[in-house]
């Protein structure tokens, strides 16, 4: 069932997924503003986790555990974008203005509390 080609494919998928996780972490740490961070992290985490889990599902084969990992991938592909969108909309409605180039080095703060929303 598991031969060299399978193992090589699983290795490639898992390492590619880990690489995307690393890119997502870099985006989270280095980007200047909340919106840039969330766009980087949501995409990279969903893709990285998808690749890693796909590799593991292939390695586990189509029996009980492989199907469970595929269910996990389906859950992840549904939940990660939804959570990212809900959080970004909540931040925008709370008045967090997106960072623009002439805003200087770091990102904008939330002006006042939620009651001053325009």
């Amino acid at each position: 069932m598991i031969d060299a080609a399978h193992a090589l494919l699983v290795c490639f998928l898992v390492i590619a997924g880990a690489a995307f996780f690393f890119i997502g972490t870099l985006g989270l740490l280095r980007f200047p503003d909340f919106y840039t961070r969330i766009h980087a992290v949501t995409k990279c985490d969903a893709l990285g986790a998808g690749l890693v889990l796909l590799g593991l599902a292939i390695w586990r084969g189509p029996d009980g555990e492989g199907v469970r990992i595929l269910a996990l991938i389906a859950l992840l592909l549904i939940s990660s974008p939804t959570a990212g969108h809900a959080l970004a909309r909540a931040a925008f409605r709370t008045g967090l203005k997106p960072w623009t180039r002439n805003d200087g080095e770091r990102d904008g703060e939330i002006p006042g509390d939620a009651s001053e929303r325009d």
Binding site: G17, T25, L28, R37, I38, V52, L53, G84, L87, D107
Partner: peptide, 18 residues
Amino acid sequence: TLPDRILAANVIGTKTMV
């Protein structure tokens, strides 16, 4: 900002799942 912290929690959650 506060959304950054919520985002960090979400990201760590995804990583922990994998």
